[in-house]
Nucleic acid binder design. Structure first.
Lengths: 126, 126
DNA sequence: ACATCATCTGGAGCGGGCTCCAGGTCAAGG
DNA sequence: CCTTGACCTGGAGCCCGCTCCAGATGATGT
């Protein structure tokens, strides 16, 4: 069973070492195994979980929700609850995408308007 | 030429009155006209600009960039620069959308995995 | 043996973006 | 008139999510 040093876990997950320690302190990462001398030894399972954390964080899930999800993960009986949490998050991601698409439309209208103004005034080539 | 009280501008833009004052202080909103007694009187142009600000903020443009954009808007000769700024922002919005779609895929995989686990273990109905 | 380096801990500090507060000033309704 | 309420100002405070620091400890390479 391979293990990984903090530096390796950081490289693999894309989180800084400080952030990994912070996540552990916050309960997003359950206590990581230690070597005899007290250094962290991340497991493959830890890295897998960090991958998911990365994805959830990057899609805007707040630390508190991540922590909740992590707590639930400690108990197999909460599978339904975790599923619900993920589904709610999926819906919120969908909402963000929809909002971004609409806003992108507005930005592009503005861009088109600028282009027209520029050409009309001769400031931009047609 | 219609004008709007702070409360009206807030309702129309969706920004709190405090945020409107903050934006003005930061230079995102150029100094708003005042009534004889010193109260703000927002114009239609102000509200239009706030609409755009809303859109840009909601798509993740930071305060500093908004400020830059606002400064450029004071000088007609900077049209090209503003256009470039918007185009860059459009590209970053597109990148966010792409990233979200990919991450959504990952989340949905996880959801599917949970469903299967749930059914397999009998915790969830097929 | 020694210098170097990675890591450890607890806690302070930071940047972004607001949000709230105290204390004061007007304008309008009863 | 007098109260009420919207508004004003400058500045402090807050929440989030890290990020950095000092000081100590243990592993590593020469």
């Amino acid at each position: 069973m391979t293990t990984y040093s903090p530096a390796e876990a950081s490289a693999a997950s894309g989180f800084s070492i400080d952030t990994l320690r912070y996540y552990e302190k916050e309960g997003i990462l359950r206590p990581v195994a230690r070597t005899g001398s007290g250094r962290r030894a991340y497991s493959d399972a830890d890295l897998g979980w960090l991958d998911l954390v990365r994805c959830l964080r990057d899609t805007g899930m707040p630390i508190a929700a991540l922590k909740r999800y992590a707590e639930l993960s400690a108990d197999a009986a909460t599978l339904g609850e975790r599923l619900a949490l993920l589904e709610a998050h999926d819906a919120s991601v969908q909402a963000s995408i929809d909002a971004l698409l609409a806003q992108q439309g507005q930005i592009r209208e503005k861009i088109a308007w600028y282009r027209e103004q520029g050409v009309r005034s001769g400031a931009l080539p047609a």
